[in-house]
Design a protein around this nucleic acid. Structure first.
Lengths: 333, 333
DNA sequence: ATGAAAGCGCTAACAC
DNA sequence: GTGTTAGCGCTTTCAT
C-alpha cells in the first residue's frame, strides 16, 4: 500500500498535523522536526495524495483543455504551448477533443467539472454558446483561446481573424488577382476571416459571391474536394484563400492533379502557419497565428481567474502576420 | 456552492446512503424513491464529485499519457487515438510531453501518481528505464506504446521497427540504390530501424558505415541540417532513409536547396506515414505505422491491467507497411 | 512548537 | 428498502 500521512507521522513520532505542516510549509515547526519528517518522507517514498488534499478544498492542480481535434497541427501546437505554461505553474492538462460536436462538448465539460478541475480552457468551436454561458454562471474559472465570443464576459485570447482574412486577400489583390475563391468551414473564426476577405474585395471594387460553399471538415481531403470543384468552374479563379493550412494543402493537391502549376497557374494562401506550411512544395504563403504566445497568454489569464484576483476580464487580440512564401505570385493574364 | 450528496438527500427526504445507491445503481431501492432522487438530482443540477468518490477507493477515471512531444504529428495522432478509445471506456487523458528528457519523465510520473491516475501509458523514449521499472514494481497499471522494453514484463504495443527499417532499405535497394544514407535520432526504436537497415544492406552485400552521425532533435530543421551535410560529401548518397517523416521532409528541403530533384537525383523514404506524408511534394514514400490501431490496442491492454484481470501480459507487435509514393525512384547511374 | 479533532463528499458494511 | 456510521487521506482551527 502507498504510505499515507499517518505512516510518516508514526515513523517520525509526530502527529499528522505536524506532517501536514511540513508538507505545505505552513505553521511553525522547528527546523529539527521538520528535517526529521522530511527524511522519513523520503525514506518511505511518501507522496501526498492530491485527491485527498483536493477534497479538503484545495486545488486539483489540473486544468481542462477542450479543443476540436488534437490531431490537427494547429490545435496540437496550441495544446503544447498551453501545456508548457501550465507545467511551469504546477498544473497538468486533461485534454478533450470535441470534433466540433456540441454534444461532446457538453459531455466533456460535465466530466471535467465532476473531476473538479481548477479551470477550463476552451479552444473548441462552440457553435452552441449555452454550455459556455453555464460555465461562466457557475463561476468556473474559464478562458477562451482562438475564438471570440463577443456577448460573453470571459477572458479571451485570439487573433484578429478579420484582419487575417483582409491581409490574405489584400496580398492576392496586390498581386493582380481579381478572381479569388475562398475555402472555409462554417465556423465563427472563419466567418470573421471571410468578412475580412469581403472587405478587401469590396475596397478593391470587386464583386464577391454573396453565398459561398462551405466545407464540412477542416482537413486536407475536404479542401481538396472543394478545390477540385472550384477549379473546374468555367470561370476558374486564379487564386484561392483557404482558411487554414490543411485546406490550403488540399487545394494544392487538387491543383496538382489538374496539372496546374503553383503559383504560376494558381496562387494559394493558407492560415495558421503551422510547421507544415514551410515544408510543402511550394512553401505556403499563409497568415501566421502566434501559437506559443497565445498559449502562454490564455494560461496566464486563466491563472488570474483561478487565483480569484479581483480585476477586469480581458480580451487579448493578437495581430496575425502574413508570411509570404512561394505559393503566391503575380497574376499574368 | 455546488450541491453535495447531502443536499439532494435532504431535498429528497432520504439518507445519503440511498442517494449513493441510486447514483451507483447498487443495492436495492424502490423504483419510486429512485425516480424521486433522480429528479431532485436533475433539479439541483447535482454532479457527484469524482474526487470524493476516488478518495473512498474508487477510480479517478483518468489515465496519464506520457509522450515525447504533443506537437509532433505522429504523437498527437497516437494521443488522439488513445483519447478516443479512453473516452468510450469512460476515461479522460492527462497528457504530458517529456521532450525525451528523463528528468521531466520522472517528474511527470510522480505528479500523475500523486493525482492517483488509474493507469499510465508510456509513449516516451525512456532511455532511462528505472522510472518505468519503479512503476511496475509499485503495481501501477502501465502499458507502453511505440517502444519495446525487452527486459520488462509490461504490456506493450509497438510496430516491428526492425522490419520497418528493413522494408525501407530493401525498397531502395530494389530500385538499384547502393549508396544509402540514414538519418535518425539516437532512440531505441531508431536503433531497431537501423538494425533493419543494416541487415538489408548486409544481405545485399553492401558495406555500411559502422558509425553514423545522429541528429539531436527529431524535427524538420535537424533533418535538413544533417542532410545538407550528407549531400555535400564527396561520395554523395543517391538515397536517404529518414527515421521519421519530419526528418524526411528536412532531407527533401535540403535537397531542394541544393537544386537536387527528388526523386530523380535523390530518393527519400520516411517513417510513420503521418497525414503529412501524402501532402509534401513529392508525396513521401514512407513506412506506415497503424496509429489508430495502436492507440486502441494499448488502451485495451491498459484496461485489462486496471481491472486486475488475471492474465499473461502481452507484447503486441504490429507490422509496418511500406507505402510507396513519389519520393523514391530507380537509380539511374 | 505541536497535537486533537472536526470535516471535505462519498462509499460500503451493517443494522433495522 | 432504507438509514447509521465508520472511514478514505488530508487541512485547518484551536488548544496546549
Amino acid at each position: 500500500m502507498k504510505p499515507t500521512i499517518y505512516d510518516v507521522a508514526r515513523e517520525a513520532g509526530v502527529s499528522i498535523a505536524t506532517v501536514s505542516k511540513v508538507i505545505n510549509n505552513t505553521g511553525r515547526i522547528s527546523e529539527k522536526t521538520k528535517e526529521n519528517v522530511l527524511n522519513i518522507m523520503k525514506q518511505l517514498n511518501y507522496q501526498p495524495s492530491v485527491v485527498a488534499s483536493a477534497l479538503t478544498g484545495k486545488s486539483t492542480y489540473t486544468i481542462g483543455l477542450m479543443i476540436p481535434d488534437l490531431a490537427n497541427p494547429f490545435f496540437s501546437g496550441i495544446a503544447r504551448s498551453i501545456e508548457d505554461r501550465a507545467h511551469v505553474l504546477g498544473y497538468n492538462l486533461v485534454i478533450c477533443s470535441s470534433d466540433y460536436d456540441s454534444a461532446k462538448e457538453a459531455k466533456y465539460i460535465s466530466l471535467l467539472l465532476q473531476k473538479s478541475v481548477d479551470g477550463i480552457i476552451l479552444a473548441s468551436g462552440f457553435e452552441n454558446i449555452e454550455t459556455v454561458k453555464d460555465l461562466i454562471k457557475q463561476k468556473v474559472p474559464t478562458a477562451i483561446i482562438a475564438r471570440e465570443i463577443p456577448s460573453l464576459e470571459v477572458d479571451t485570447v485570439a487573433v484578429d481573424d478579420f484582419l487575417g482574412g483582409y491581409q490574405a486577400t489584400s496580398h492576392l489583390l496586390a498581386l493582380g488577382h481579381t478572381n479569388i475563391a475562398i475555402i472555409a468551414r462554417d465556423l465563427w473564426s472563419n466567418r470573421e476571416r471571410m468578412r475580412g476577405y469581403r472587405q478587401a474585395l469590396e475596397e478593391a471594387g470587386i464583386a464577391y459571391p454573396s453565398e459561398v460553399e462551405y466545407v464540412s471538415e477542416s482537413d486536407v481531403e475536404s479542401g481538396k474536394q472543394l478545390a477540385e470543384q472550384i477549379l473546374q468552374q468555367k470561370n476558374r479563379p486564379t487564386a484561392i484563400f483557404a482558411c487554414n493550412d490543411l485546406l490550403a494543402m488540399g487545394a494544392i493537391q487538387a491543383a496538382r492533379e489538374q496539372a496546374l502549376s503553383i503559383p504560376r497557374d494558381l496562387s494559394v494562401v493558407g492560415f495558421d502557419n503551422t510547421v507544415w506550411a514551410s515544408v510543402t512544395d511550394p512553401p505556403l504563403t499563409t497568415v501566421a497565428q502566434p501559437i506559443r504566445d497565445m498559449g502562454t497568454q490564455v494560461m496566464n489569464l486563466l491563472m488570474q481567474e483561478i487565483n480569484g484576483q479581483k480585476r477586469h476580464r480581458q480580451r487579448v487580440v493578437l495581430l496575425p502576420e502574413l508570411i509570404v512564401r512561394d505559393s503566391t505570385a503575380r497574376y499574368e493574364s
